[in-house]
């Protein structure tokens, strides 16, 4: 099974119950790398097959793949 790195945003209405939502995400198969309470975001890894399950967790507003970003190498004139 492919493991995906994901970011999850907790719905506004559930921000007051942030820890409870994180627990439900873990139950849904998420391995938590970071829980960012100030912004209501959880990052972690999940089997690709469980991603839909994660999306259905009460209090989860969105699940997105963790994207890579790159800037130009140091020698580049355009940054």
């Amino acid at each position: 099974m492919t493991v995906e790195r994901v970011n999850i945003v907790i719905a506004d209405a559930y921000l007051g119950r942030f820890e409870a939502v994180v627990k439900r995400c873990v139950k849904a198969g998420l391995e938590v790398d970071q829980a960012l309470k100030d912004i209501g975001v959880v990052s972690g890894r999940i089997d690709a097959g469980n991603r839909q399950r994660l999306r259905r967790v009460r209090g989860v507003a969105a699940v997105e793949t963790d994207r890579e970003l790159h800037i130009a190498p140091p020698g580049s004139e355009k940054q």
Binding site: D66, E68, L69, I71
Partner: peptide
């Protein structure tokens, strides 16, 4: 972003969280 100039959404989100 790393010294090679790469990063990820999760690292940026962590940075925003820290800044707030």
């Amino acid at each position: 972003l790393s010294n090679r100039g790469s990063g990820s959404d999760s690292g940026i989100l962590a940075g925003i969280n820290w800044a707030i």
